[in-house]
Structures are given as structure tokens and as C-alpha cells.
Amino acid sequence: MSEQQAEVTTDYEPRIVAFLCKWCSSAGSDLAGVSRIQYPSNATPITVPCTGSISPNYILSALKKGADGVLVSGCHIGDCHYIEGNFLARRKIHLVKELLGFVGIEQDRFRMSWVSAAEGAKYSQVIKDFVEDLRPLGPQTKVKAGRS
């Protein structure tokens, strides 16, 4: 690793948009709070009814608006409040990943996780891991509007 790169990765804080489903992952992140489990502040949550409602468009748009990473977190398969929304979401990941590859963005900038309302510790771990995994990628500049 060259010195220049090392410099970039140390003073760079990845900015993450985290889409959380209302019933499981948002409640799971509430539990992390109630349990006072600390994790990095890089991810700003947006609560949606269901991961099934997240269109690939939102993910691309978050990257365009300057996110370095996008997280989608929902109920475990089989536990979806809306029957099969998370299943739809899982099918969409594939599509999103391919789309990212197509426009030349590292596929690892998008992550999906399953966090239940009882998994506060898991939520904090997901955030920690994602932040660490995004660091080596450096800031996302490929599709950021206004940058080249």
C-alpha cells in the first residue's frame, strides 16, 4: 500500500445510508440503543415499512447523492411482517449488485443484512463491519453527482 493511499483511508469516514425495515431492523437498532451498545455513527437510518419497498433506484440514488455505502436491513427470511417483502428484497439484491458492476461501482458498497427486533448486538456489529469493509475502498466518487 502506498503512503498516499494509507493517508486517504485513515482520515476518511465512510458515509452510509441505512434503510431499515420498521418491524425488524429498526426495532433491532432501537434495542442496540436500549442496551447502549456503541457503534460508529457513520450510518444514518431511514426507516421504511418493508425492505420489499426499497427500489434499486433508491440505492443508486443514495450513491449518486454521495453515499460511500448503502445498507438494507430487514427481517429474517420467513419472519417478514408483510409475508414475503424481504424475500422480494433478497431477489432484488442480485439485480442491484449487477447494476453496480455495470456502472463501475464496487459491489461491496452495497450490503444487505437480516436483523430481527431481538438482535441489537447484531445490528451494531453489522454497522461496525460495514464501516471497516468500506474503509479500504476509499470515498465513492464514481457516480457522485458533480464529481468525476
Binding site: S26, S29, D30, L31, A32, G33, V34, R36, I37, Q38, Y39, S41, P45, T47, S124
Partner: peptide, 13 residues
């Protein structure tokens, strides 16, 4: 806007 469970309680700085 949930600034307690999803913010104040999980960060120190």
C-alpha cells in the same frame, strides 16, 4: 425523528 435509541444512546462523541 429517533435521535435517542438510534443516536444518543449508541454514540459517545
Amino acid at each position: 425523528a429517533n435521535i435517542r435509541e438510534q443516536c444518543a444512546w449508541v454514540h459517545k462523541d
